[in-house]
Computed example of a mutant assay.
Amino acid sequence: MSTVTLYHNPRCSTSRHALELLKARGIEPVVIEYLKNPPTADELRRIAAATGQPLRALIRTKQPEYLEQGLDNPALTDDELLAAMVATPVLINRPIVVTEKGARLGRPLQAIEQVL
């Protein structure tokens, strides 16, 4: 298999389970701890496109920053959402697995299987 990238937060149990799932399948992913090394707006745009979901699907709506920054406003543009995600990476939902077959948010964890 070609490169598998995992956007990972080691403090998140779902993200840790995604890493375990990949390793159990013999896959050593490129692990990006996105809180330390946040993706750029362009990278997030490409990831969202690869999931086939709207950009909003990659935002953690349960984070206090989501409401604090007014991100619940449906009139916000993708550029505005991307700027918030880059400035406040904790807003990025996780885990995200990216392969040559596409990208999936690992919620539910089984969704990752679709791109392996």
Results as ranks from 00 to 15, higher is better:
1 M>L: 12
2 S>A: 14
7 Y>G: 07
8 H>P: 00
8 H>I: 06
8 H>Y: 07
8 H>G: 02
9 N>K: 08
10 P>H: 08
11 R>L: 09
13 S>C: 14
13 S>V: 13
14 T>I: 09
14 T>D: 11
14 T>H: 10
15 S>M: 07
15 S>P: 03
15 S>W: 04
16 R>M: 11
16 R>D: 12
18 A>F: 07
18 A>N: 10
20 E>Y: 03
20 E>V: 12
20 E>F: 05
20 E>A: 14
21 L>Q: 12
21 L>N: 10
22 L>Y: 03
22 L>K: 02
23 K>R: 15
24 A>L: 07
24 A>P: 09
25 R>N: 15
26 G>Q: 07
26 G>S: 08
27 I>R: 01
27 I>H: 06
29 P>W: 00
31 V>M: 02
31 V>L: 07
32 I>K: 08
32 I>N: 04
33 E>Q: 15
33 E>C: 12
33 E>R: 14
35 L>M: 13
37 N>D: 15
37 N>W: 04
38 P>Q: 05
38 P>K: 01
39 P>C: 07
41 A>K: 03
41 A>H: 00
42 D>W: 00
42 D>Y: 02
42 D>T: 14
43 E>D: 14
43 E>G: 05
45 R>A: 04
45 R>H: 05
46 R>M: 11
46 R>A: 15
49 A>W: 02
49 A>M: 09
49 A>C: 10
51 T>G: 03
52 G>R: 00
53 Q>G: 10
54 P>K: 12
54 P>M: 09
55 L>C: 06
56 R>G: 05
56 R>H: 08
57 A>N: 13
58 L>K: 05
58 L>H: 00
59 I>R: 05
59 I>G: 01
60 R>T: 02
60 R>C: 06
62 K>E: 14
63 Q>C: 13
63 Q>T: 13
65 E>P: 03
67 L>R: 15
68 E>S: 15
68 E>D: 15
69 Q>V: 05
69 Q>Y: 14
70 G>S: 10
70 G>Q: 07
71 L>F: 03
72 D>M: 05
73 N>D: 15
74 P>C: 06
74 P>S: 07
75 A>I: 01
75 A>M: 11
75 A>H: 12
76 L>M: 07
76 L>T: 06
76 L>P: 06
77 T>I: 05
78 D>N: 10
79 D>Q: 12
80 E>V: 08
80 E>N: 10
80 E>T: 11
82 L>H: 00
82 L>E: 00
83 A>P: 07
83 A>E: 13
84 A>F: 03
85 M>K: 09
86 V>Q: 01
87 A>D: 14
87 A>Q: 13
87 A>S: 15
88 T>W: 04
88 T>P: 04
89 P>E: 01
90 V>P: 02
90 V>A: 13
91 L>T: 01
92 I>H: 00
92 I>W: 01
92 I>S: 02
94 R>I: 08
96 I>Y: 06
96 I>S: 05
96 I>E: 00
98 V>Q: 03
98 V>S: 04
99 T>Q: 11
101 K>H: 15
101 K>P: 08
102 G>T: 09
103 A>Y: 01
103 A>F: 04
104 R>P: 03
104 R>D: 10
106 G>H: 07
106 G>K: 02
107 R>K: 11
107 R>W: 03
108 P>V: 07
108 P>Y: 02
108 P>C: 09
109 L>E: 06
110 Q>C: 13
110 Q>L: 14
111 A>T: 11
112 I>A: 09
113 E>V: 14
115 V>P: 03
115 V>M: 08
116 L>F: 12
116 L>I: 14
116 L>C: 12
